[in-house]
Amino acid sequence: MPVISLTVNGNPVTADVEPRWLLSRLLRDHLGLTGTHVGCDTSQCGACVIHVDGKPVKSCAMLAAQADGAQITTIEGLAQKGKLHPMQEAFRDNHALQCGFCTPGMVMMSVALATEQPDLDEPAVRKGLEGNLCRCTGYQNIINAVMVGAKAMRG
């Protein structure tokens, strides 16, 4: 089994991984980070989106072995010292989640969008979320939250 070293939410991690383990499986089953969800097998739903070296990636479409040396942030690593990240706060304020299952991926993608395009507009948010499915909210509140969260992130 390959031994990999990576940083997860700021913590160094070394793990023996089977080649066939997905990164999502390493996170969920072996590191106990169950906030990263798996909702499909074909990369459509986006519930498993995390950041790998600062970029949003579908962790169910990446092997754990490929994360050797990577800096990884999951939904659990977003809030700092008990304080919600501005995007998490915006999601709560705008009722941008219902069942919460798509939420971790949705928030991680939104943080990435706002980081890459600090002044993103509504069409950019809609397009930016094309790989994240939500079945509860109808998206409007998510879009509002991303706009508010992005603004808060700009400071």
Partner: peptide, 9 residues
């Protein structure tokens, strides 16, 4: 192509 996360890989 795909979506932003897919485009990153």
């Amino acid at each position: 192509i795909g979506d932003p996360a897919v485009r990153n890989r």
